[in-house]
Design a protein around this nucleic acid. Structure first.
Lengths: 344, 344
DNA sequence: TTGAAAGCGCTAACAG
DNA sequence: CTGTTAGCGCTTTCAA
């Protein structure tokens, strides 16, 4: 057997003929526009129902809206991002907008490709989650399409932003650890060199928060940072480096839960127990952290809340492109679990 | 400060004027169509470059192609799906197609909404990953747009399929466990009642594979199934039910890694050690299973391979809508880790 | 090999 | 309140 050629789509013209009205009328009913009598609405609705009509987005796109929101997700594997995504999709659930995701955006080039593709497809709004693209690119995109950027510190005149307070999050961890009696607290950061990203990226802000919090606790002389990446491997290598240094830390603040997973591997390999020998905290409160076998102390960012706020900002911006940009900063909370305890 | 109104997009007309040729010429060069001289191609390419022209997908869509592939992912949280997705996107990397994901497709209604939205947006091809929709809906969609279905057993005349051999996967697990000396091997399945899904869904096939393999090992009298869901909670509840039954199993085959995570929780709560008291195997070989702290024996499905095959089938079908449908079945492999050992 | 022109389905001026 | 009509940017006959 073989698939057959698809039948011609039902168009607004078919509906108009069936309902014995003009196409304008149909269009207006579709968009709940001004100037339609209840009688006409009923007739049109009935025809739409009977014919199974659905508006063709490409044609609508040619006249302005596509009713599509694009979300750029840097890493679909990071269990933190789905929360944000849910927050976004839930907010658009009862609207005519459909949310579509751009996958595989690892790196500046891939991000550019995906964002351009979204612009080309006439999307009505964009949410960029933790983009690594240079600011100039973000602002260019935002100049073309209403855009909200999540997880990038530093305000912009071109786009709205939603961030979690990474400075406060890092402080939560250090407060928790010092409260338990730790002094030799090390940090594993995601390496960053670009001067703008050094200010704007969450990883850089977390490292900064670590430094500031250590100062605040009069532990400036204990500051001990190793610079790898926010990956399991980065955590593994980072922990090995830390263990090789003269004074072994009694606690490690890993910049992300992924990193913490690698730290756990390295510590297990070195025959060290957690939290017996070393305490460990992560960041993002991912599913990994919550697993009973892992039970990692972590910082929760309320991803759903972040996404919902981004969606609201985006809808506002779509409504009024000229309103001043808004920056929303949300507060993280600490989730203490079994990987942190008083030092030995 | 406030964002400004975006400048008018560069169109094919601008390019034509700039290059001093017709719009037809530009269109042909864009699509590498027949009937363009090298001189003309060069002129047009130069103009495109200088003006930074990008084709507007909505306009293209009105005449046929949108150069967009839609992928429906049921659960973005399942760490198995990103592998498939990578396989798909990698295959489309060097083409003009852009892959976009439909998020939040949990349940029949949500799936319908997303698939319809993709059809409305004139997508050129669809990949549906492990859809739960009734077969009739899948075939209707496939009648409208070239479609490949992943992870749904049972051939269709309307769409191509790529599946992993779940029957063989279940057998791998049972072979492994019996090889270790287990006889009382229980299974936790995802509850299914719909008669068609009972044949087509991977979870149902895995349960079937468990039964067949137990028979093959002359352990038909030991068959012990509990029916919950493929979630952490489902695993937790399933394990509790198993422990409450008269003869405690020496091994549990959980239908998914998610399920296995819940089993681990329940066993820990009951004071049972893994694999000391009970061996445990999962399915999907997700990131969870690979975590050092967990180290779960699992079945690997070669997700990247699945995705790549689906992409190839889709491209073939887009090229020729009338070719007979193809069914591809891939073979899983067992990844033994530390949660399985000989019975006590 | 090249270009003129029609039209895809929809929206929005504008006229009635 | 309702309908006529002119495009949106692109592809595709068809004629030159």
């Amino acid at each position: 057997m073989e698939p057959v050629t698809p039948p011609r789509r039902v168009t607004i013209v078919d509906v108009a003929q069936h309902a014995k009205v003009s196409t304008t009328a149909v269009s207006k009913v579709l968009r709940n526009a001004y100037g339609t009598s209840p009688t006409m609405r009923a007739k049109v609705r009935k025809a739409i129902e009977e014919l199974g009509y659905r508006p063709y987005a490409a044609a609508r796109g040619m006249r302005g809206q596509t009713y599509t929101i694009g979300v750029m997700l840097p890493d679909i594997r990071n269990p933190f991002f789905p929360e944000i995504l849910d927050g976004i999709t839930d907010s658009f659930q009862d609207t005519d907008y459909q949310v579509l995701l751009g996958p595989g955006c690892n790196g500046v080039a891939a991000e550019a490709r995906v964002t351009e593709a979204m612009v080309d497809r006439g999307m009505d709004g964009l949410v960029l989650i933790a983009p690594v693209s240079p600011r100039s690119h973000l602002e260019r995109i935002a100049g073309l399409v209403p855009t909200v950027v999540i997880g990038r510190h530093g305000p912009s005149a071109a786009y709205d932003t939603v961030t979690d307070d990474d400075l406060a999050g890092a402080a939560l961890v250090i407060d928790h650890l010092t409260g338990l009696g730790h002094r030799r607290i090390a940090h594993i950061e995601h390496h960053e060199t670009d001067p703008i990203r050094l200010i704007e990226m969450p990883n850089a802000v977390r490292a900064d928060g670590y430094r500031q919090a250590m100062h605040a606790h009069n532990l400036a002389d204990q500051i001990n940072i190793v610079s790898t990446t926010y990956t399991q491997e980065g955590g593994y290598l980072g922990a090995q480096q830390l263990l090789a240094r003269p004074q072994r830390p009694t606690a490690i603040f890993a910049g992300s839960d992924f990193t913490a997973m690698g730290v756990l591997d390295a510590l297990a390999e070195a025959g060290l127990s957690v939290p017996g020998d070393i305490s460990l905290a992560g960041y993002d409160n991912t599913t990994f952290a919550a697993l009973g076998q892992v039970s990692l102390t972590s910082v929760d960012q309320a991803g759903h809340h972040i996404g919902a706020n981004a969606a609201r900002l985006l809808q506002d911006r779509i409504t009024d492109r000229h309103r001043p940009t808004t920056q929303i900063k949300l507060s993280p909370t600490l989730i203490p679990r079994r990987t942190t305890a008083p030092p030995p």
